[in-house]
Design a protein around this nucleic acid. Sequence first.
DNA 1: CAGCGGCAGTGTTACGTATAACGTGGCTGG
DNA 2: CCAGCCACGTTATACGTAACACTGCCGCTG
Lengths: 344, 344
Amino acid sequence: MASGGIRPTSRDVARAAGVSQATVSLVLGDKWRGRVSERTAAVVREAAGDLGYAPNLAARSLRTGRTRTALLVVPALTHEYFARVYTGAAAVAAEHGFGVVLYPSPAGTGPARDPFGSARAAIDGVLASSMAADALAGIGEGGRAGGLPLVMLDSDPAAPGGPPTVNLAVADGIRQVARHLLALGHRRIIHLASDVDTWTFRVRADTVAAELRAVPGALLRTERCALDVTAARDAALRALTASGPRPTAVLCDGDTLAAGACKAARHLGLHVPRDLSVSGFDDLSLATALDPELTTVRLPAEQVGGAGMSALLTLLRGDHPAPVDLPVELVVRGSTGPVAAKEA
Amino acid sequence: MASGGIRPTSRDVARAAGVSQATVSLVLGDKWRGRVSERTAAVVREAAGDLGYAPNLAARSLRTGRTRTALLVVPALTHEYFARVYTGAAAVAAEHGFGVVLYPSPAGTGPARDPFGSARAAIDGVLASSMAADALAGIGEGGRAGGLPLVMLDSDPAAPGGPPTVNLAVADGIRQVARHLLALGHRRIIHLASDVDTWTFRVRADTVAAELRAVPGALLRTERCALDVTAARDAALRALTASGPRPTAVLCDGDTLAAGACKAARHLGLHVPRDLSVSGFDDLSLATALDPELTTVRLPAEQVGGAGMSALLTLLRGDHPAPVDLPVELVVRGSTGPVAAKEA
DNA sequence: CAGCGGCAGTGTTACGTATAACGTGGCTGG
DNA sequence: CCAGCCACGTTATACGTAACACTGCCGCTG
């Protein structure tokens, strides 16, 4: 079991099983239907098991040109959403004997000019978040990434001739949030939005605007800021202290922004949700760590990664994966409530 | 630049440079000192650059048995600390042409019996967090992991004959927290501790106990719970509503626990920090998302990963890396304050 | 002038796998 | 009785790199 350090090769297995190396390769490669007898196959598998044989991936890659490794391109793994996307992708990949590596070497120390660098030699396909698209100029042209099969995550599915996409129903999610707030009686609403200009955030902005336009008397103020707590706090403070009647709800593009909005509220002496309702988006662990817990939209991040990986595997088989749209779910918690009586 | 898809080989470079393939290998492998003239080397490098040559990693691995890839074993990437450890490790690895893959395929779908599975074929060494040690029974025996060079992170450095370690000065950090609370006048203190029994948490418990023992009149109550907000909230509620005079401070083993403690305080109508001081540990992004922001201990997580990777590279060179102890820093924010006058 | 050592490279080989091409008995239909 | 075919394997080969052994050649030395 605990071998001295030298790994057995397919030839060792062949010797042990009394067959040729080619037969071992056939059996273990699952290509033996009708070419090797059931019994011989069993013998080979047992010998492989006894020796603890595992194929040398380098040799296999060299021969086939396939590495059984996918590259996941995300802006930062320290964002919980992307960590979960990775988790989902890696799980599906593992089921198919694939591995997942990450780009960039998160410090961003890699050569920006040649996005894939030497990694290009060692991967079969790319799974890229549209939020990392800035790191990869020209990605997605012709539906490929530097000649490699590509699947885009959270990207505009309408792009013609683009790569297969896996998307979340963000429009639906943010619409549910908007209607939730409207149903609670809120009419003066701040949309605390990301200042990043990618599809997933444009959709949010458009949908919120459309929903509020449909309601007479609804008033929308949009405030854009970076996706961090401090920036969100400052932006929320600006919006809440602007002239005119005070908004009664802050609809945020992300839980992080919502945390900032809550801090702004507290700073102004406003109670959440009595004086101000705050909604998030993402359902990070942060959402339940705050007090009150955030009303937010739960994103199936693992499924995004998993579905993306499935699509990539389909692509690698030569088929065309269908576009995927994953449902999201409004989770109502304590940070939103009915508008105060005096405000109504 | 954008070649049709077929990658150039070292032989192509050799042809372009007018030398033999072996020379290309020598030059690009940086083994040419005194074996190839400066001028020839320059010619080779230029040809390689023109063709956009990148070595075929599979072929190299096959020949050398080295893959230039390290395995990072962590419990879950969705924990911000480990995501940051990964980030640091990957950055250092990239500087040396190494990659980092993660274990387990986070869903835990891998074969638990053979911890490394087929990955063992494709890695040169292992970087393992002691907090994932349960996933890897027998890891670290003889300072190796299944025959592979190993570096342990956040592990007991005193283990004899064990692998090289990279540690944080957690004892120093938690001591600073304890003294901070004591200096603020707190005497009745809850230690909200992890129920995980690994070195890093044992050190916390021992250090807190020792510090409080040294102060006359100090009273310590330890409450153990799982590392999530809800469990922490419940544990804190238990401790805060126990009979006897109420504690004035909760010293937590992690920011997540501290978030739970804050929720418990709010549930009991206690103001943080006026009625109850709460301290965290880790300095996650959560620490500044909460309101008030958490007094906590900042851990150089990226440096843990980076130093671990450096140690592993040293090990792979055949040298003995020195044990690393990284300093931590107390960050005083708004969640701790002087004990209320009436309590004193 | 023979011999030696160092420089600057070249020729060749091995790594372990996957697969195309190639037997080889035995059975069966005509 | 033989062609043909199936079931069952084997032989041979290619992949791209790194390392080892080797070869001219030049200058120096005794």
